[in-house]
Write a protein that binds this DNA or RNA. Structure first.
Lengths: 199, 199, 199, 199
DNA sequence: CATGAATGAGCGTTCATTCAT
DNA sequence: AATGAATGAACGCTCATTCAT
């Protein structure tokens, strides 16, 4: 078995285990068992437990980032770009629930090292939103008074919280497309029926 | 020192410690030291470490819930109500950064017991948003196609993610009122300059 | 309530609690609750937890010792004296099962201070048996080759083990008088049908 | 070092420590130090502290049981069998004083789980006595009015109490053979010089 | 490279004892 | 004398990490 496979197997197993039990409640032995390797083997590929978590972020979020960038590269309309981002994000989160859990849960915890997520893949990922907004403002289709760095957080927070429900409760039966439409519609047009103050 | 004070002191200390280090990285002895009581004293007021976390949620979120309800009780306009909720939430999170951290961080982790947060104070708090939306739909000022149970999550997620930045990074220098305006404006009117597709 | 009563109440409660849970598994608060006094009150009457155990021994065993001495004082026949001792012991153990437990269980444990039970009430109690044997040997009714200090232990051990069953299992349905007869008969006449080797 | 050795080393160390300090006064770290392993290593071989105690019982008592059975297998005379049992038991208790302590002390305590010692090795061991008695009764050499289930306890209790002295006090200087003779003689022929009431 | 037995630092929790009231 | 809230030392057990094989 090639080394690259072991690495991937451990990442996959750790994602599954972290998602199920949370980072702190997960044991190295749990991950080892799930990956079908010995406990010690994990330390041939990762420095420590926390390093596994970081690797998941960087690698898995990196994949989503790349995929999203690629999807957006052929699009020029900021409205469509936002739709693509939304749909792609929710779709990924639904497809890869384990990763969704890890992002959602672990993003907010551990020892603050990772929280200040500038200069990492996750930060880049979120900044895609800000870039789309800026592009729309340049094109004159998005309101110029919107602050991209505030709006990117609001938008990501909304997506994140909405998609959490997939892993936690059974209360929702909406499809990805329905949720995409709801959230996108909210952000694009707002909740008001009439927007007399708009211009 | 009256018992009620000890309880409050421990809650306060635990909130501070949890916010600083995260639940799992916090030690009972850290909380005891912060509260200036003996380790054992904590167990006179709480069943175990996790019980402290739950108590913070129920008690502190309960206070915010009550305060918010009171502020909203005199208002009839759903748009104003949403503004009041937003401003009040962001103001509380900025004022009580430790509690904000605990809510934001701990809400997503621990052993899934509290994650399914129906039937608790937190659930009630979030449902305020859904109620405001339903009221606005009845009054005909909010779009009827918006799903209140999806929108409440999107809205809370946006607020939550936006306010996180206060505790984590230094990147933002916006005031509460500016952020309130940004987020509210986004939700009410959307990001589009023109909304030809509306109604 | 007079102090003497508190002392007695605590002894009684402790005997009950120790019997039920064993010395190490018993909590001071258990005893306090059983005695209906505050935890701290116990320390007005006893130096520490272990002191309670010692007091039970000295006081309760002392009572049995006195009672037994009194019953034996009017008897001159060593055979009858042994019967009286046996019957009295088994009767007490059956009547006061809690004390029986404490004697049986706690006699063999704790920190060896008490185990070397010379110079205490329990030692005196066991020595009654040796005295009876010596008396019988002097009178020429008991075999002179029997060593009283060995036989006293064998006899007490037999009684102790036999009576344990009352507190632990349900396997026996024999009455005190039946058990008395069995044990006494064994010790007096042995298990052999014929004793040609005697004298 | 083979696993079987670690297991045995810990059993040996625990027996020693329990004998010296008693179960509740013994620390896992005491056992670990005595066995020259790390604290955590103990938990690779035993579930918890109490499990160590149970294992000592089952394993060590099992060995004595097997040895005794083997010694008795070639003997047909119940009188000789009783002598063999007695001698063998006392010899083992003198040889393995630590185990003797553990049996004597711990048998009567802990949380009553093992006290009802049917269906375990210890129960089997004691029942050897009852079987010998029944055999003697069938052969017509032991009195038929003796109840084997009462006598087995009386006999074991006598042996147990007599052998305790070896670990606790210095008062006795008798050899195993002397004690064997005393106890056996007592049980076979009784203490009376004449047994006119027999048969 | 891979293993998994062994390690031992670390922590949540308990509870005998104290002492201010 | 009596109380019971408060204390804090102590311990069973866990688990990330190491290393001999």
């Amino acid at each position: 078995m090639a080394a690259v496979n072991k690495h991937a197997k451990i990442i996959l197993a750790a994602t599954k285990v972290f998602a199920k039990k949370g980072f702190f409640n997960s044991r190295i032995s749990d991950i080892a068992k799930e990956a079908k390797v010995a406990d010690g083997t994990i330390y041939l590929y990762f420095n420590n437990k926390y390093d596994i978590l970081l690797s998941i972020f960087e690698e898995e979020v990196g994949k989503i980032f790349d995929k999203t960038q690629q999807l957006l590269s052929e699009e020029e309309d900021p409205r469509r770009m936002l739709e693509i981002f939304t749909n792609q994000h929710l779709r990924q989160m639904k497809k890869n629930k384990n990763l969704a859990e890890v992002i959602q849960i672990e993003l907010r915890q551990t020892n603050k090292v990772i929280k200040n997520y500038r200069n990492n893949k996750f930060s880049s990922y979120i900044n895609i939103i800000a870039e789309i907004i800026r592009k729309g403002q340049k094109q004159g289709v998005f309101r110029p008074d919107i602050l991209p760095d505030v709006a990117k957080r609001a938008f990501f927070g909304a997506l994140d919280e909405v998609s959490r429900v997939w892993n936690v409760s059974l209360e929702t039966h909406y499809t990805v497309d329905e949720i995409t439409h709801q959230v996108l519609s909210l952000f694009l047009s707002g909740i008001l029926i009439e927007n007399p103050g708009k211009h």
